Simulated assay, not measured.
Amino acid sequence: MRYILLLLVVSISFLTKLEAQSNYGITAFGTNRITARQIKEEYSTELEVLLEQYYENRAEFRIQKLTLEEKLNEGQYFSYVHIDLFKSYTDKIDFIIDFVENDESEVRMAYRKVESKELKDPDHVIKKWIAYSIASKKLFDNGEIKDINCPVVHCTWSFNHPELTPFLTYFENNVPKNTSALKEILFYSNSAEYREAAAYLLAHAKLEIQSLVSTLEPTIDDPSSLVRNAGMRVIYYAVRADNELKIPLDKVITALNYPSFTDRNKALVILRSLPKSRFSREQLKKFLPILFEILQKKDAHNYRNAHTVLKNISGKDFSDTDIDKWEEWIKAVIY
């Protein structure tokens, strides 16, 4: 009897794992040369191995991810191929596969040049931020952070836990006096990790909110997606609090078409926070086709934000599956 129960447990475990391996979505963004359906049909074995390695061996996951990216670019049609595995708060798994075609690379990867300098960490605030990021994420994942109210313009997982309170005190005491140094790091540091941390830390610098947004402008076209994500995330929180702030809107629109899933995500939430009166017809012509691609390809949870932006701008109440209606409306605006 005990043997039968053991077999039953093993069988259930195997079936659950098998279901998890096949239950994932795919987004193929930035190209029509290959579709999500084709990728799932041709590379399902590689994707299932990747999914298993994601949970069991991250080092091997990174190696196999690079191998699959190279396979996807065997025809050398792309300047950029990148696979992200995105797990939502509801535990839904999506492979986000971003492509940049060769003839679009100059436009879609038009980043600013960082004049690299090796800059020191002032009062160890960056080291402290990295420690805070690790600790707060772990606490959040363990369900130990319930209250994420934020005492400054922007927080990641907030500071509402006894283990995190000392970090907030440290930032309050040391960030404002090092604002100039953090700005220099944001502009010039040869470390993307330092530039990313500076973007988050400047939310603690007690800058006037418009000054903070202006200071973060260089992050929007930074060559690192981590820095772009951090800067636009802080800008989003600022705009959410005051949607009349002056923001580098053309840069945000350009970032919507940068290669990374997180670029689209953060540009979308900024656009989502603005009234339609903020957009010129030329701007609409530039970003409506990108919104349509995000919606049409059901780009993980980005498509919901794209749908919200379209509804805000158009005044229409088409659903996110009314692709033909949205296409017709967009064509009427653009042409």
Rank of each mutant, 00 (worst) to 15 (best):
Y3R: 01
L5V: 15
L6E: 14
L8Y: 12
V9A: 13
V9C: 06
V10S: 10
S11Y: 14
F14T: 05
N23P: 00
Y24L: 03
I26W: 07
I26F: 03
T27V: 09
T31K: 00
R33T: 01
A36F: 00
R37V: 14
K40M: 06
Q53K: 14
Y55L: 08
A59V: 12
E60W: 02
F61M: 05
Q64I: 03
K65T: 15
E74T: 13
Y77S: 11
F78K: 02
Y80M: 02
V81G: 01
H82R: 06
D84S: 11
K87H: 06
D94N: 15
I96W: 03
V100E: 04
E101I: 06
D103H: 12
D103K: 08
S105M: 07
S105L: 05
K113S: 14
D121I: 05
H124I: 03
K127V: 06
A131K: 15
S133L: 14
I134A: 15
I134W: 13
K137C: 05
F140H: 13
N142W: 13
N142P: 01
N142D: 15
I145A: 10
D147L: 05
P151R: 05
W157S: 09
W157L: 14
F159N: 12
F159E: 11
P162W: 08
E163M: 11
T169H: 08
K177P: 05
A181N: 10
L182N: 08
E184H: 10
Y188Q: 13
S189R: 00
N190Y: 03
E193P: 04
Y194L: 04
Y194W: 07
L201P: 06
L201N: 03
H204S: 07
H204Y: 15
L207M: 14
Q210S: 15
V213G: 05
L216W: 07
E217K: 11
T219F: 10
T219H: 12
D221Y: 11
D222P: 12
D222I: 03
S224K: 04
L226G: 14
R228F: 07
M232I: 10
M232P: 08
M232L: 12
R233N: 15
Y237G: 00
A238M: 02
D242G: 03
E244A: 09
I247Q: 06
Y258L: 09
L268R: 08
V269T: 13
R272P: 01
L274C: 09
P275C: 06
S277H: 00
S280G: 04
E282G: 12
L284I: 01
K285I: 03
L288G: 09
I290K: 12
L291C: 09
E293N: 12
Q296I: 01
K298M: 06
D299V: 03
A300M: 02
R304I: 11
H307V: 11
H307I: 08
L310E: 07
K311W: 00
S314V: 02
D317A: 13
F318L: 00
I323T: 07
I330Y: 06
V333E: 14
